[in-house]
Amino acid sequence: MTGRAADREGPVRDPGLARERTRLAWRRTVLAVSVVAVLATRLALTRGTAGTVLAALTGLGWLAVLVATFPRYAGSAPRSGPGASGAHRLALPLAALVSAGFAVLGVLLVLAPMR
């Protein structure tokens, strides 16, 4: 018998690898969100009072992503079984909307006059 273990055992054994990969992907993404937030804040702070307000908004968006996606990137013990991935689904649209928000904010800052 030369079949791979996965072929022989029927249901594939998964010692939480899919979950671990997803957690690492979330960490990379939150890191990217943080870098973009820093860039947006830096640009905003060169644009006077209105820019300061936009910088504060950027900080709020970054904080919202950090808090809402915490269960997904933090290292809690991997659970298994169906449905375990279903919790905290709001984190995905939120992360996407905040990212798009950074883009809109960036457009506003580029169009705003330099101080």
């Binding site: 998964d14 899919a18 979950r19 990969r21 997803t22 992907a25 979330w26 990379r28 993404t29 990217a32 969100v33 870098v35 973009v36 860039l39 947006a40 640009l43 298994s80 079984g81 169906p82 449905g83 375990a84 991935s85 279903g86 995905l92 992360a95 996407a96 990212s99 798009a100 950074f102 883009a103 960036g106 800052l109 580029v110």
Partner: peptide, 29 residues
């Protein structure tokens, strides 16, 4: 659940692609 997680990772890869473009735009500016 592994299908859902794979779908989620695909989303995350796309989101990072978008963030790289946004970050590039902010850096250019």
């Amino acid at each position: 659940y592994r299908f859902s997680l794979a779908n989620e990772r695909t989303f995350l890869a796309w989101l990072r692609t978008g963030l790289a473009l946004v970050g590039g735009g902010l850096a250019v500016a």
